[in-house]
Structure formats: C-alpha cells, structure tokens
Design a protein around this nucleic acid. Structure first.
Lengths: 229, 229
DNA sequence: AACTCGCCGATCGTACATTATTTGTCAACA
DNA sequence: TGTTGACAAATAATGTACGATCGGCGAGTT
C-alpha cells in the first residue's frame, strides 16, 4: 500500500515520482477543501503537472472529475478555477443535509430492528468511552453510527449525497478541536436519537438529527472564523 | 477545419448529426440518460472516440466528468461502465427534489416582490396560451417559471442541485407525451403556487410545489413503464 | 485438474501539435 | 501627452499519437 498523503503545500517535492495515478485527484481535492489553494485561484494544468510530478493528462482528468463534483469551475478555453470553500459553502451543504438527513432518519425509525438499536447503543457507548480522545477514532465511530442508519436506505442517490457532503465537512473540520460544549451536544443528540428510535418517534428523531446537523455546521463555521484571523 | 462529425451507427440521433458545438460530454450524457446505451454497459474510450470522431483524450475527460456527476462508475485500469438510469433513479432524484424545492419555495415566498408575482403570472399566461402545443417552448417557459423563484436564492449549491436534477429529468422525459390529466395538474399547481405567493402563505406554497414535483416524478415513471414493453 | 506463461485488448501516462486567449508593443490620432 | 487600435509574441488550453502497463483469457505443461 503506497497511498501516503504526502502533503505538500504550495510547492511540492518531485521526490516520489512513481505510483500516483488516481491520487492526483485526492491531492487536488484536499488542497481545495482544506484551503491550501485560495478561492478562485486559477489551476493551470502544466503547473500542477510539474508540482505533482506527473504529466498533464492525469491532471486534466482529475480536474474534470472535480468539476463534475462541483469543486472547480471550468470555462471553455480558459481553464479551471477553484470554487471558494468558505462559510457560505459550508452553510449551503449543511442546509441541504438538514433537509436530507431528517428524511433518511425518519425512514430508519420505521425500519430499525431491536438489533439495530442495540448496535447503535454499542457504538454510542464506545464513543462516550473514547470521549473525543482520538479524532480519527471518533470520526470512524461517528461514521459507523450514522451509516448504520442510512446505509440500507433505498434512495442510494440521497445516501451518496450524504456521504459526499460528510467527506467534505470532515475534510474541512479535520484538525479543528471540538469545543466542550459541542462535545456535550453531540453525545446528547445521539442519545436522544436512540431514545426516539426506541420509542418509534419518527418526528422526534428527525428533529434531533436536524439539530445535530445544524449544530455541527455552526461549530465548523465558528471554527473557520477563528482560523481566519 | 478538420472536425468531421463521423457518426455513428445505431446509437446516434440523426437530428443533429453535424452539430460541432455539441460537446462529447453532452453526447455521452444524453446517451446514458436517454437509455441509448444499456445499463452497466462498458464504455471503451477507443470505441467512443471512433464513434464521435475525436481522439481519446476528450472522451476520457468527458467520462471523468460524468463520473464526478455519478453517471458512470469507473474502476482503475478497467474503464468505465454506465450507471443504470431506471425508475429507481428517477424516484431517488424526485424524492430529493421533494425535499429541496419546497425549502427553496418557502424562501421565495418571503422574498418575492410584486413584480415577481406579475412576472410569474405573465409566464403562466404564456404557458396556458401555449397549452402544451410545443414541447420545447413549454419546457423553456416552465424553466423560466421555476428559475424566477430559485435563481436568486442564496444557497447556490442547492440551486445547482436543482438545475442538474431538472436537466436529468427533462432529458429522460423528452419525447414523452404529457397526459391530459398531468397537463391539468401542472396548470392547477402553478396557479395555486402563485396564489400562495400572493397570500404570503409559505406553507401552502411549499406543499403545492411538493405535489408538483411528486406528480411530475410519478408521471415520468409511468411513462417509463409504458415504454418498457 | 490446477497452475503458469504468454498473448491480446484496453486503460493510463508521456510527449507533441494545434488552437485560442491574453499580454505587450508600437504607431496613429485627438 | 495620453488614449486607442491593430498586430505580434507569449501563455495556456485543447486535441492527437504512441509507448508502457495492467487485467483477462486461453493454451500448454506438470
């Protein structure tokens, strides 16, 4: 396994020239999401090719894919620019999630089995035991928690949207510390969610997940503001 | 000028055989959405290049973009396959729209000016005067109608999602006749929507647009079923 | 029958050619 | 003198061609 996200701010070392391929995409995507490249900055294929130690074709294809996902905007014969990943972007995504996730959750309440509830509780116990000690582990547990609810939903398109949005938000908030207040809220909302599933209260569960998403978005935006100065 | 649009056996639409401006991307996308290429069919770059009269690079880039948008799935060193565009796909998209459009509409009710209402009524008058006589013209008018409501929304991401979904649905339903019952419903829902905007009834408007989307999706799915046999 | 080797086909990466856009220079003119 | 226009050179995107590499598949050997 040779996928090491050898970062590389503005200027990269051409040291490792072998391998790569699809990871050019990941590199560019990460650079955009994490704000290493500035908003609306022009992305020249030749320059990127030099930086990443490949030729132009992989760059071009990666840019096209990113365009399809909406991370860069391209105008004919004028190349690509990075879409600004700012507070508005986070707000936009979170607002969409505040529409989608409650709907997915509502469905889950009508579908969950006793085993599902127990699994949710098990994961939640792990999360609380970990108590935000390891960012990576916490993120994985949290992912499992929500995946358990969404993964079996029939609307694959909506779930994919959720996955993509979650990836983006995670990439943005990676490295941020989670405030104590937010930590408490996360645990509370998860517990409330489980209770609603147990009680078969679909509306309550939807409301809880709505607050969960909203709080998460708010927290990320506030962290972004802090980082700006 | 060496652009000879060398088309193309069974698969191409003869209507625009020499449209140079039509990009490779649009061609492939249309072929997928309209079902001209079968679900899960393999998309070989060399073959497509031959069919569309270009070399392989434009094809590769178009495929990458389509991958970003979710129309094809690609596995490393094994190329691209078509994501099936079936009833489930339409249902998934419509369900998402049934979440997003009401939210956008709700915002519009709180934002609309007198001039907006008048413009809506003007467009609606045109739609009714046309009375589904010309599919293309009707589609454009309908687009203007909804664009007027959504285009100024602050959540660009949500609006883009709407635009993309609308494009897909339009491409699928293009060529289908609209049933008389559906025609009546469309007009009624538009009028109801305008009335709610006038009365500043956000909830009513959201409900109306929800029914509008749901009805539209149902209609498309039923047409797809008819075409299947 | 299972495993290996080598061929075929297709993708992936590199290099090059072409075309479009931007930039810079200079001269004509008010 | 400052502005504008055209034209030329640079810059970068788009398109073409080709070799390298990987995965599948069947023949042949043990």
């Amino acid at each position: 396994m040779s996928r090491i996200s050898k970062l590389s701010d503005a200027i990269t070392d051409p040291s490792r020239s072998e391998d790569v391929g699809a990871s050019v995409y990941e590199q560019l995507r990460d650079d955009i999401i994490s704000g290493r490249v500035k908003a609306n900055e022009r992305l020249k294929v030749a320059e990127l090719a030099g930086r990443l130690g490949t030729s132009t074709n992989p760059i071009r294809e990666a840019l096209q894919q990113l365009r399809g996902e909406g991370f860069v905007v391209m105008t004919p014969n004028r190349g690509a620019r990075v879409r600004p990943i700012d507070e508005d972007f986070v707000r936009d995504i979170c607002e969409i999630e505040m529409l989608i996730e409650p709907a997915l959750t509502r469905w889950f309440v009508g579908f969950a089995t006793q085993a599902d509830v127990e699994e949710l509780e098990r994961i939640q116990d792990e999360i609380e035991a970990l108590n935000f000690g390891d960012e990576m582990k916490h993120s994985n547990l949290d992912l499992r928690f929500h995946q358990l609810m969404y993964d079996r939903h029939y609307n694959r398109h909506a779930v994919e949207l959720w996955v993509r949005h979650r990836h983006i938000l995670w990439a943005i908030s990676r490295g941020f510390p989670t405030s104590l207040s937010r930590q408490a809220n996360v645990l509370g909302e998860h517990r409330e969610l489980i209770a609603c599933v147990k009680a078969q209260d679909a509306q309550g569960a939807a409301d809880a997940i709505g607050r969960h998403v909203e709080g998460s978005g708010r927290h990320i935006i506030e962290r972004m503001r802090l980082l700006k100065r």
